[in-house]
Design a protein around this nucleic acid. Structure first.
Length: 1008
RNA sequence: GCUGAAGUGGUGGAAUUGGUAGACACGUUGGACUUAAAAUCCAAUGGCCAUUAUGGCCGUGCGGGUUCAAGUCCCGCCUUCAGUACCA
């Protein structure tokens, strides 16, 4: 019997499914172990070989833990709400639920053929009502909670209401909106219901507020900060603008400090923790309030009829700034407000009004992206107003400038040009004085921002102090004046939670008098309504605005037709849906008890499984999913719903498998500018300094293809080397040669195009043999470089695929895929098979003869393999254990080992990696139970004990020869023996060695 | 700029606390088997020089240092990848 992997793999996959081999129980005497993969979004393109990398690693670990006697939870599911299905629906009218179901089917088939040990009875789909029922439920819990900074946890909103009723909000220390008004108990009790609800919204952990959001017009929705990359949308790369909208937000900022501290106790990679720390962006400093000087002579306001009348600045204004360097307060020579700062319009003097308004208009026009790209240009405008220095009482000019961001801190800074480079550059540019407050520091060229080596000068009571002492002192003085205090600022913003999309979780929310109301938990789930089309409505409302049955009947407690809305018992429902990260922020808890209809998971299940022991997934989720999930987990922990406040103890980021793209370089005849645009053509003409009238000049409007080729040939113009396009890798052979016909059938528009070289040169001879360019990049359908695992499984088998993905290199590393290399691991599996089979017909042949105790070669091979493989798995060094298996099989083959005592435990070692072949051979050995339940072989040191060592003998650190010596030979005797050796004498050539280093069991080094 | 990771043959990559650099594969070359091909098996394979064998020199991004001994430790650079960025 030969190694028929297709047959074997199908057989055992069927066996595992029928016997529910990997079903995990929520009760067990064994210790628990929870291995989790980041669940995939089921895209229409299916899996490519890059996707299963992490799944294979986690599967190996899960299988290993089962061999080690753990009760292992290893589930899988689908993050099945999302944009692509919706966009497909917009294009085709196909309901996203249908395409999603189809895609899941494909994914499942592809996953199954790789032989994962998932417990599919716990599968979750975020788009399934039985799942999003609980996403909605968690949303309601967030709505009904506020964050008490005194107890440092989320508490029930009813407690807050009681406090308001009893004593108002003066003593409430909450994470809430910045601009809450103070009120007494008496005030509260006479507020009407709408007013009360408005106030409560400012405290709730999820709240509705008009916020400036990232609006993506092309996608027709808002995006969270982590969904924007380089100023454009992560998906599709569309421009993003700032826009004010009423949106649901999550008060994640309440958890900023705990999210930061929590990182200390989890075993995640340093780079990932660092990303989260940066994202949270804690900075310690002070907030300082500067009074704006109300100068009656200069300030004026516009009266109703448009005339200017002299007047003081109405009311008194304060500018609050946040600074990490309050110790430099005597170096302030101006203040800068963000152009969007709300005080700008109030304090600008009439003389400066035109300039300021022009500046604001100019900055508003610049897109986020331009602003980010261009940080060198210094712009700003003087408001004409002055602030008063809290200590010197000197006037400080107030400027606006777009280097100050409205979204960070208070949107205003105290500018200390001698200590901050940006302030310095701004001051230089606008000729603002730069007072020096540092002792013995030259600031004529640049600012001095080294706070560690600072001695403050020219600063009144701070003179002679260092950064630390000065900071402490100045905060003390500011507090005395009531103009400042120590403050910690976080970069982390509250997360926008509304999306103007169809294919997401509907909110369990209806509106009465414009105020949001939660639908009672017992009526969940609120299911997505049917709509005619998935686009926004003509009035610009989200797609759910197209639904005709989308109103809430508070009598019947059900969704009814919009026509019935009467503003008394029937109310409109929320039209936004939740973002993609809603469902993925708690799914790891659902797996613990996936089919529970009464709770998101039972407390028994939650207390048994507690948290994820090993989580494997991509690092791209560092500031999105992995931060939001930690936030929700902490919230659920505060509310007593989950037993731990960090959901994943250990996290590993698998690296990406990259594709090798192929490029062709083309010149196309019909459209002369297709690959060589007119401007590029002009540039070449320019480069050659040919002008109209010159001999070589070609009029671009009168383009002559043949003449152009001649010019290229003569080297008079060149084609820029970036004129390329991706070409499907399946048209290219191993020698990088393109199947020209296949290519031209694929892209008929290039039928008459000619291939050129990478540098734009024409290629000699016929155009039939063409070598493509190669480049390693992300595997993607649009780059035509994807390798489908289906084909690999068909041709080499799942075990080969699993082994090869692991063999490619370290799990965390980015590495290119090269299908050619798979023959190495495939041959290994064939050799493994042969080890258990012999003779003409390759009959199963394993003997009961004990391994030769005397020589012990096979036992030695086995035990050193056990040791190495166990170490490797525990260190997640899967690539080296594949090598170890190869070495073991090579050695046992050479030893002609047929002993069951060796070959049986060997299978258990290999089974996490190549489970199908292991099951088959295990079965042939006579076992009737799955190998997955077999205990992992015990390593026995005694089989590795050596009596001698092949010592490397080196001279001045360079190894020259080796010498076999007994391991128990004492140091001085080794030295004697080595020095007496003939080869040593050859090396020394009569010289006496200065020193001889002998490290018993390791090395001998002779210094001459 | 800042933060994190990494630079080793033609390629992917090994090398535990400093102790025989290049394990294990791919590829390449030569050979066996075959009418032939595929498959399989055997051998060689870091570079250079020498050769009948024995050998010699150089080699882990670059320049220094510590050490009997450095891919590994220290100092100073360079390059690549990833994340992040007017964060006050």
């Amino acid at each position: 019997m030969n190694y028929n992997f297709n047959e074997i793999e199908a057989k055992w996959q069927k066996y595992w499914a029928e016997n529910q081999t990997f079903k995990a129980e929520n009760q067990s005497d064994k210790p628990k172990y929870y291995v989790l993969d980041m669940f995939p979004y089921p895209s229409g393109a299916g899996l490519h070989v890059g996707h299963p990398l992490g799944y294979i690693a986690s599967d190996i670990y899960a299988r290993y833990k089962r061999h080690q006697g753990f009760n292992v939870l290893h589930p899988q599911g689908y993050d099945s709400f999302g944009l692509p299905a919706e966009q497909y629906a917009i294009q085709t009218g196909q309901h996203p639920a249908i395409t999603t179901a189809e895609n899941i089917k494909t994914y499942r088939r592809q996953l199954d053929q790789i032989g994962f040990s998932f417990d599919w009875s716990r599968e979750v789909r975020t788009s399934d009502p039985s799942y999003y029922k609980w996403t909605q439920w968690i949303f309601i819990q967030l709505f009904n909670s506020w964050y008490n900074k005194d107890s440092d946890k989320a508490e029930d909103i009813s407690e807050l209401i009681k406090t308001f009723e009893a004593e108002g909000n003066a003593n409430v220390n909450a994470a809430c909106d910045d601009d809450v008004e103070f009120f007494t108990a008496a005030d509260w009790n006479i507020f009407d219901d709408v007013k009360k609800q408005e106030i409560l919204l400012q405290y709730r952990l999820t709240y509705l507020a008009e916020t400036e959001v990232n609006w993506c017009p092309a996608l027709g929705t808002v995006l969270a900060n982590d969904e924007i990359v380089n100023g454009v949308s992560e998906r599709g790369g569309h421009p993003v603008v700032r826009k004010k909208m009423t949106q649901w937000s999550m008060r994640i900022s309440a958890y900023a400090e705990r999210l930061l501290q929590g990182l200390e106790k989890i075993d995640w990679t340093d780079s990932l923790k660092e990303s989260q720390r940066n994202w949270i962006g804690k900075s310690v400093g002070a907030s300082v309030k500067f009074n704006v000087i109300a100068n009656e002579a200069k300030q004026s306001v516009e009266s109703e009829n448009g005339d200017f009348t002299l007047s003081g600045v109405e009311g008194s204004h304060q500018i609050e700034v946040f600074t990490t360097r309050p110790d430099t307060i005597f170096g302030v020579s101006f203040m800068t407000l963000a152009p969007e700062h709300e005080l700008v319009s109030k304090i600008t003097t009439p003389e400066q009004k035109a300039e300021v308004e022009a500046y604001i208009e100019a900055t508003a026009k610049r897109s986020e992206r331009d602003r980010m790209a261009d940080v060198k240009t210094i712009t700003g405008a003087f408001t004409g107003a002055y602030a008063e220095h809290p200590f010197t009482k000197e006037p400080i000019p107030i400027w606006i400038g777009d280097y100050v961001l409205a979204g960070y801190g208070t949107g205003a800074v105290m500018s200390v040009p001698c200590g901050d480079q940006r302030d310095y550059d701004f001051a230089k540019h606008f000729n603002i004085p730069i007072p020096n407050i540092f002792e013995g520091v030259d600031i004529s060229k640049e600012a001095f921002s080294d706070k560690e080596n600072t001695v403050i000068a020219n600063s009144d009571f701070l003179n002679g102090l260092n950064y630390k002492k000065a900071t402490k002192r100045v905060i003390f003085e500011l507090e005395k004046l009531g103009q400042g205090e120590g403050k910690t600022n976080y970069r982390l913003r509250d997360a926008v939670f509304s999306r103007q999309r169809y294919w997401g979780e509907p909110f369990p929310v209806y509106y009465v008098n414009g105020m949001p109301q939660m639908i009672d938990e017992k009526h969940l789930p609120i299911q997505l309504p049917e709509v005619e089309k998935y686009l926004p409505t003509e009035t610009g409302e989200p797609p759910l605005g197209n639904a005709t049955v989308w109103a809430w009947d508070t009598n019947k407690n059900e969704v009814v037709s919009n026509d019935l809305i009467d503003n008394e018992t029937i109310h409109p429902l929320e039209l936004n849906t939740m973002p993609g990260w809603a469902g993925s922020s708690w799914y790891f808890n659902r797996y613990m008890d996936a089919n529970n209809n009464d709770a998101f998971a039972s407390q028994e299940a939650l207390n048994y499984w507690k948290d994820v022991d090993l989580y494997i997934g991509g690092s791209e989720h560092a500031t999105g999913h992995l931060l939001y999930s930690r936030f929700w987990q902490k919230f659920l922990f505060d509310k007593g719903q989950v037993p731990v406040d960090e959901f994943a103890k250990k996290l590993i980021n698998q690296g990406m498998i990259l594709g090798t793209s192929a490029f062709v370089y083309l010149l196309r005849k019909e459209k002369r500018n297709y690959f060589l645009s007119k401007t590029q053509y002009d540039r070449y003409i320019e480069k050659e300094k040919v002008k109209p009238g010159d001999e070589n000049y070609v009029d671009p409007t009168d383009f002559d293809w043949d003449n152009f080729l001649t010019l290229i040939q003569e080297g008079k113009v060149a084609v820029e080397n970036s004129q390329y396009m991706h070409c499907d890798v399946s048209f290219v052979n191993a020698s990088d040669e393109l199947d020209v016909n296949a290519f031209k059938n694929w892209r008929p528009e290039f039928k008459d195009a000619i291939f050129i070289g990478e540098k734009g040169e024409l290629i000699e001879g016929d155009n039939d043999v063409y070598k493509v360019g190669r480049e390693v990049e992300k595997m993607s359908k649009s780059k035509y470089n994807v390798v489908n695992p289906d084909n690999i499984c068909k041709e080499y088998g799942a075990d080969s695929l699993r082994l090869y993905e692991m063999f490619l290199g370290p799990l965390e590393q980015y590495k290119p895929w090269n299908t050619a290399g798979i023959t190495g691991v495939h041959n290994f599996l064939k050799k493994l098979w042969k080890l258990y089979h012999q003779g003409e017909n390759s009959k199963f042949y394993v003997t009961d003869t004990p391994p030769s105790e005397g020589k012990g070669e096979a036992l030695k091979t086995l035990h050193k393999t056990i040791k190495k493989v166990q170490e490797d798995i525990e260190n997640f060094s899967f690539n080296t254990s594949v090598s170890t298996f190869m070495i073991a099989v090579n050695e046992l083959t050479a030893q002609k080992c047929t002993s069951k005592a060796i070959l049986e435990p060997l299978l258990v070692l290999i089974s996490p990696y190549a489970p199908h072949i292991a099951e088959e051979l295990w079965n042939q050995l006579g076992h009737r139970e799955s190998i997955s339940t077999a205990p992992f072989p015990k390593f026995d040191e005694s089989h590795l004990v050596e009596s001698s060592k092949n010592y490397p003998i080196s001279f001045n650190g360079k190894m020259r020869f080796t010498l076999e010596l007994p391991l128990d030979m004492p140091k001085d005797e080794i030295e004697k023996t080595v020095l007496a050796h003939e080869k040593t004498q050859d090396q020394l050539q009569g010289r006496t060695p200065k020193k001889v280093i002998v490290v018993p069991g390791k090395i001998v080094n002779i210094v001459g």
